[in-house]
Simulated scan of single mutants.
Amino acid sequence: MTTQTAAEADECPVVGTLEDVLAALGDPVRLEMVRRMWGAGGPKPCGQLYAGVSKSTASHHFKVLREAGIVRTARINGKVHQELRKAELEAAFGPVLESVVRAANR
């Protein structure tokens, strides 16, 4: 069993600016991806994070989230997972992400 931590798999040293983060979350597909990761507590398989879009479209959305510093990618047992950078985002912006996710759940 090969397990690689998210930090080892995809180094994202910096969370993007607040503008980058909010722009990335402005798309309903990406916001839903983040909402699904919110309570996960760790990496989650990519396939569990989206519905209604093609795999290539989902890959594009994951790339936008990664470039904004919202998620990091991990390969666990040969499968790609995404992990929300919750602690880093909260350190950078306080409860902004939580507020956005809670508003999306309404």
Rank of each mutant, 00 (worst) to 15 (best):
T2N: 11
T2F: 12
T3K: 07
T3P: 02
T3D: 05
T5Y: 10
A6N: 02
A7P: 01
C12L: 09
P13S: 06
P13W: 08
P13N: 10
V15A: 05
L18H: 02
E19P: 00
V21H: 00
V21R: 00
L22I: 02
L22S: 01
L22C: 01
A23L: 03
A23C: 03
A23T: 07
A24K: 02
G26T: 05
D27P: 02
D27K: 07
D27V: 02
D27L: 07
P28V: 06
R30N: 07
E32Y: 04
V34A: 09
V34K: 07
V34W: 01
R36F: 11
M37P: 04
M37V: 05
A40S: 13
G42D: 13
P43F: 08
G47F: 07
Q48I: 02
L49D: 07
L49W: 10
A51S: 14
G52T: 13
V53G: 08
K55N: 12
S56F: 12
S59I: 10
S59T: 15
H60N: 13
H61Q: 13
F62G: 02
K63R: 15
V64E: 13
V64K: 11
V64H: 06
L65H: 05
E67F: 05
A68C: 05
G69C: 03
G69A: 01
V71A: 06
T73I: 11
A74K: 02
I76L: 07
I76M: 07
N77P: 01
G78V: 11
H81F: 13
E83I: 02
E83P: 02
E83S: 03
K86T: 12
K86C: 03
L89F: 08
L89V: 11
E90V: 10
E90T: 12
F93P: 05
F93R: 03
P95V: 11
L97K: 00
V100M: 06
V100R: 04
V100T: 10
V101E: 06
V101M: 10
R106L: 08
